[in-house]
Design a binder for these strands. Structure first.
Length: 549
RNA sequence: GCAUCCGUAGCUCAACUGGAUAGAGCAUCAGACUUCGAAUCUGAGGGUUGGGGGUUCAAAUCCCUCCGGGUGCACCA
């Protein structure tokens, strides 16, 4: 539809000997402005030397309107050309919602593009805290969106079980181990103070008694036990949210395979790295940074930048066409280093999409919830799930744009009322399910799509609220595409709310269950279409949509 | 100080990336169930889009500049 209009308008521009410009369509905000609008007349006005409305007039005069598609074309405001679809066209288009059913909204615009999505990537030194939820769910939904638009997605978790953090973990556990055995033993300065460290120590005592007091000077038992313990918990938490990574990529493998050394060598060869003060430096200033960065410390240990660079190069080497990273705003400093490194090694940074999300704060109604790290009791993601449920967690964490701070209201999330946007959406779904159950007792085969398609008199779908609803439902594929291409899942939650709202309005104005069987069937198809869109949207969001509540 | 994100209704946030009268939800007030789920719907009030300049047919959106907030700024990750 859009394409046809676009073609026709471009042809008209040529015929009128106007300069050729891109013809863009927007969806007007206000219903009075129709279903599609274009601003070509205003774009052209200056170069043509006429006022925009005159330009619009000359275009519209040449336009041949097919009234099975369009019911009106109008010039409005400063020079917009507004198009309105005919009801018949809307209803006809909506049939595909039924026929495509659970794949309505899917597309293949990415054409199987090999995409690597890396997120969470928390080192196994502790549990996921509530704030991690934003990243966990953003990645989950973005991954789903990418798949719905035809990307082949590898979901990846990058971790490091070597370095400093793990040593600290081991020392922390060992210290608690000694303390639990009744010894006076100092706790490391920067140790992990969480309660879970004590739990781990107790488990080790139950398993090994005091036999590890001496001997394990490398603390390797403590390190390995702690790592496994933490990783198990992290994966369990992720599983509760239906998050599954395809690849767990160990930073250590980059060392073992010599990839780290290789990067240093190559950078030095290109004179993008040099030795100084006993360390190896990366010439970040060549790429616009304020100063050069250390990539290998004078102790011989690399800083985090080096493996990060090597890791990203490996992603390219593994054949990914698109590399998506999700980071919290607290890691923002690492991003330029990695991108510069990638560029230094000869890869295109445009193929790396870094999504940075802002931080989360938690409130419980009026009260601010503190999650201080110094405190032994951290509020974990598991705690949050226990408190508000999986669906609310999934929905709330993606409902705001990634660029703004997210205020997570725990009291609201667990409230089972109309204030809670998750319930509003799920209620619409459950309400439809209930109507369909009703219809089934009236002998209408709502589960038989082909019979619904062939036995329904679609010309009976003509009320304003029905047409509005169908138009809204038909936006779904575009919404999915735009959410995917902009990496902005929050638009989907906004959209689904509008769908629910538009449905409730229709429901309120028009009875579905009806003595007029033909009319009833027509309206049932509208309900069914709505249910499909809500269900598909919820699927992407990892939110369940119950048949009953 | 530098980098970066942000500032929109009383509160939490949208605004399709430059379009028309800046929109939702909550809160407040006034209405709607004998009937398919009232966990719903209808209506009302509420704004100098932090301030000031600029760019153009058109700015919440782009540029400059102040003000205010978040997050980073290690030979930690």
């Amino acid at each position: 539809m859009k394409e046809q209009l676009q073609k026709q308008l471009s042809a008209i521009l040529a015929e009128l000997q106007y300069p050729s410009v891109d013809v863009n369509f927007d969806k007007p905000k206000v219903d009075a402005h129709g279903d599609l609008t274009t601003n070509v007349a205003m774009v052209l006005a200056k170069s043509v030397g006429k006022n925009p409305r005159q330009v619009a007039q000359s275009i519209v005069e040449k336009l041949s309107i097919n009234d099975s598609f369009l019911s009106s074309v109008e010039i409005a405001g400063p020079g917009f050309i507004n198009f309105r679809f005919s009801n018949g066209y809307v209803v006809e288009s909506a049939k595909k919602i039924l026929s495509q059913y659970s794949s309505f909204g899917k597309s293949n615009i990415a054409n199987g593009k090999k995409t690597n999505l890396e997120w969470v990537s928390a080192n196994p030194t502790g549990l996921l805290h509530a704030g991690h939820g934003r990243q966990v769910l953003l990645g989950q939904v973005i991954g789903n969106l990418l798949e719905w638009t035809g990307h082949t997605v590898t979901r990846e978790y990058y971790f490091n079980n070597a370095g400093n953090q793990m040593r600290t973990l081991a020392e922390s556990i060992y210290s608690r181990y000694r303390q639990e055995l009744g010894d006076e033993y100092p706790f490391p300065e920067e140790g992990y103070k969480g309660e879970y460290i004590v739990d781990i120590a107790k488990e080790i005592i139950a398993l090994k008694g005091d036999s590890l007091k001496e001997g394990d000077t490398e603390r390797s038992f403590f390190k390995n036990y702690g790592e496994e313990w933490c990783f198990k918990r992290i994966k369990e938490t992720l599983a509760r949210l239906d998050v599954k990574h395809d690849v767990f990529y160990n930073e250590d493998s980059l060392y073992k395979s010599g990839k780290i050394a290789e990067v240093i060598e190559e950078l030095k060869k290109k004179d993008l790295a040099y030795d100084s003060e006993g360390a190896v430096w990366f010439r970040a200033t060549k790429f616009g940074a304020d100063k050069d960065r250390v990539i290998v410390k004078s102790t011989g240990e690399p800083t985090y930048r080096l493996p990060d660079i090597a890791y990203h190069r490996e992603k390219f080497r593994r054949g990914f066409d698109l590399i998506v990273d999700i980071f919290g705003a607290d890691h923002i400093a690492t991003i330029p280093d990695v991108l510069n490194g990638v560029q230094a090694l000869g890869y295109e940074t445009k193929d790396v999409k870094v999504i940075i999300h802002q931080m989360v704060s938690f409130v419980n109604g009026e009260e601010i919830v503190k999650m201080s790290k110094r405190n032994a009791k951290t509020y974990t993601l598991d705690d949050l799930i226990d408190e508000v449920g999986v669906d609310a967690v999934a929905y709330f964490f993606v409902m705001r744009s990634v660029g703004t701070h997210l205020e997570f209201d725990i009291a609201l999330a667990k409230e089972q009322s109309d204030k809670n946007p998750v319930y509003y959406l799920q209620y619409a779904h459950a309400r439809i399910a209930s109507i369909l159950r009703h219809a089934a007792t009236d002998g209408i085969a709502v589960n038989d799509i082909s019979s619904m398609l062939s036995n329904t008199d679609f010309s009976l779908v003509k009320e304003k609220e029905e047409i509005d609803l169908l138009k809204k439902l038909l936006e779904f594929p575009e919404i999915v595409e735009s959410c995917a291409s902009s990496f902005e899942p929050h638009r989907l939650t906004t959209y689904l709310r509008e769908v629910a709202e538009t449905f409730h309005r229709f429901y309120h104005e028009h009875r579905v269950i009806n003595d007029d069987k033909q009319l009833m069937q027509a309206r049932l198809t509208v309900c069914l279409m709505t249910k499909i869109v809500i269900a598909n949207g919820c699927k992407i969001l990892s939110v369940s949509c119950p048949e009953k509540m």
